[in-house]
Design a protein around this nucleic acid. Structure first.
Lengths: 288, 288
DNA sequence: ATTTATTAATGCGTATTTTGCATTAATGGA
DNA sequence: TCCATTAATGCAAAATACGCATTAATAAAT
C-alpha cells in the first residue's frame, strides 16, 4: 500500500469530488479514480459510496479517514526525527573526561555543542584512565577526553588542547613561586600524586619533573581523583602536582605555582564510528 | 512511500543479509537492493551502513526500525477494524422502539444481534410516535420499531410481528373476561388511552373497537407512555386498552383481558441507508 | 417528458517503474 | 595470493501507472 494513495484518499474524503480533488493533487481524474479503486481492492472494502453524480464516505471510509490522518502525521514526524538523527542533530553521545578539565575546557566544549545542536543528548561520565580504551571499544563511551596518548588500533586520537602542571600547596606554605623550588626544599616535602600508571604520559611528565631536580619524591599517597588530592592538600597533608586547569575550580586555601611542563589533552574516538553525531561534534571541536 | 518497502526494510533490519532477506520476502537480491536504495533516497537518509561484506543499521535506521514496527502494526489493526466495519460487524446503530415491546420482542431481537455480532454498539432510544419519521430521516435513529404503517417516500417498512389488544383492569375489577364486555358495562367505565394521533393505525384500531360496541368512551386521560397508563390503572383510576405485550412486563395487580384485535409491529429504515450494520440486522430480523 | 450539464468509470496507447538475470567489484578468510 | 561471499549495477522484460478521449449515469433545467 502506497502512502501516496492514502493521501489521495484523504484529499478526496475532504472534497468528495473527483475532478476537483484530482486537480488539487495534480493528477487526472482517471488516475485518481484508479488509485481509489486499487486502494479499495487492496483493503477489501469500500471507501466511498458513489454513483455518477455523488461521492460519499462509507462508515469504513469515515473511520479510515480519521485514523489514517493521525497515522500519516505520526509517520511524517517520525521521518523528520530520523532525518535529524541522520544529520547528527538528534541522538545520544557519551563522553568520558578527566575531572581536571571539568571547570575549564569541558564547559567550553559543552556550550559549543548545545548551542549548535540543542537537541543532542550528552552523557558525561568519568572513567579511570586504565578503562578508557576498553570502554571506547565496547561502546560504553563514544568519546574519551584524556591526557594519555594512545596508538591503539581502531582508535583515532587528536590533540585538542594543552595545559601546564602546577605545584599545589596550602596558602600558608613556604613555597611562593617557582624559584623557591630546589632539590633540597623539595626533598623535605610529602607528595600526593596521581596513581602511577605504566605508559601514562601524564605520569611520565611528573617523573621527568622529579628527574630534572634529580631526586626521588616522598610520595605517601596516590589518588586518581583530583578533587581528593586537592582536599588533602588543603588540609595540610602534603603538596601535589596537578594540571593548572584545577585553578578554574573554586579552591580557596590553595596556591598554584606554575611549572614549565606541558600536558596535552587529547580526544579519542573509534575509527569506525560513523555516527553522524560524533562527526558533528568532532567538526565542532576541531573547527576552531 | 510504499508500505511494502518498509516491510522489506524491517525484514532486512532483522536479517542484516540481502540474499537471505530477499529469499525470505520472495524477491531477488537485486530488487531488494533497489527497494532499500529508493527508500533511502525518498527519506533523504541512510538506513544501513554497508560494504560488499557487511550490513549494519545506522542510528537513523535503528530508530526507524523501532518506530515503523509499531506504526505498521497499528495500521494493520486499523485495516482489520475497517474491514469489520465494512462487513457490518463493527459500528453503531440507533434503534427506536415502543415501550410496549421492551419486555417481549426487543429482548429477542437484541439477543439475536449480540450473539451474531458481539462487537456491535446498539443504542436504544424511545421516540414519540410523531417524531419517529423525522428522527429517521435526520439520521438521529437508524431503525424505528413501531406500530404505525408509513408510506413515507425514502423509508422502507416491513411487518415483523403482531400482538393483540387487551383490556387492562385492576384485579378487583368486575370484568373477568371478554364476555363481560357489553355496550352498557363499557359505558360505565373511565378509560385511559394512548394519545390520539391522526393517522396512527394503533389509535384507529382502538376506535374501531369502540365502534363495534357502538359507543363513545369516557376518556379522561391520554398518555403516550404505557408504563404510566399501567400505573394509573393499578391505582384504580380507570381501565385501559393496551397491546398484550405488556403482559410480559412484571405488573402485579392487573388483569389482561385479550381482545380480538390485532396490532402489527413494523420495522422502518431509510431506503438509502447502505450501512452494512443495518443490512446485517435486517437480515437477522427477517431471517427467521 | 425531454434535453442539457455534470461527473465518475473505462478502453487504450504511452510512459514510468519494478523486476529478474547476469555480471561486477569489493572484502574477509584460507 | 587465491577463493568464496555478497552488495551493487547494466540491461531487457514485465508490470504498473498515467493521460486522453469517450462512455454512461444522473440531477437539474426547460
Amino acid at each position: 500500500m502506497d502512502l501516496q494513495r492514502i493521501k489521495y484518499f484523504l484529499a478526496l474524503a475532504e472534497q468528495l469530488h473527483y475532478w476537483k480533488t484530482a486537480e488539487k493533487v495534480n493528477i487526472t481524474q482517471s488516475a485518481l479514480t484508479r488509485q481509489i479503486q486499487s486502494l479499495e481492492n487492496e483493503l477489501g472494502l469500500q471507501l466511498f459510496e458513489r454513483n455518477k453524480r455523488n461521492v460519499k464516505l462509507t462508515p469504513a471510509g469515515k473511520f479510515l479517514r480519521e485514523k489514517w490522518e493521525v497515522e500519516l502525521n505520526e509517520l511524517e514526524y517520525i521521518h523528520q526525527f530520523a532525518k535529524q538523527i541522520h544529520l547528527g542533530e538528534r541522538g545520544t553521545i557519551t563522553i568520558a573526561h578527566p575531572d581536571s578539565i571539568s571547570a575549564s575546557i569541558m564547559p567550553d566544549i559543552l556550550a559549543k555543542i548545545t548551542q549548535a545542536f540543542p537537541q543532542l543528548q550528552i552523557k558525561l561520565v568519568q572513567v579511570l584512565y586504565e578503562n578508557q580504551l576498553d570502554f571506547l571499544k565496547n561502546y560504553k563511551i563514544d568519546l574519551a577526553i584524556t591526557r594519555d596518548i594512545t596508538s591503539e588500533q581502531g582508535v583515532k586520537s587528536k590533540k585538542i588542547y594543552h595545559d601546564h602542571l602546577a605545584l599545589v600547596v596550602p596558602l600558608e606554605h613556604a613555597f611562593k613561586n617557582f624559584e623557591d623550588l630546589s632539590k633540597e626544599s623539595l626533598k623535605a616535602q610529602k607528595f600526593i600524586l596521581p596513581t602511577k600508571d605504566e605508559g601514562s604520559s601524564y605520569s611520565e611528565i611528573i617523573q621527568s619533573l622529579f628527574k630534572s631536580y634529580d631526586f626521588v619524591p616522598d610520595v605517601y599517597l596516590h589518588s586518581e581523583f583530583g578533587s581528593t588530592i586537592i582536599a588533602l592538600v588543603r588540609k595540610g597533608l602534603g603538596i601535589a602536582i596537578l594540571p593548572d586547569s584545577y585553578m578554574h575550580h573554586q579552591s580557596p586555601g590553595l596556591r598554584f605555582i606554575p611549572l614549565p611542563f606541558k600536558t596535552d589533552i587529547l580526544i579519542n574516538w573509534r575509527a569506525d564510528d560513523h555516527n553522524p553525531v560524533l562527526a558533528n561534534i568532532l567538526k565542532l571541536v576541531f573547527g576552531d
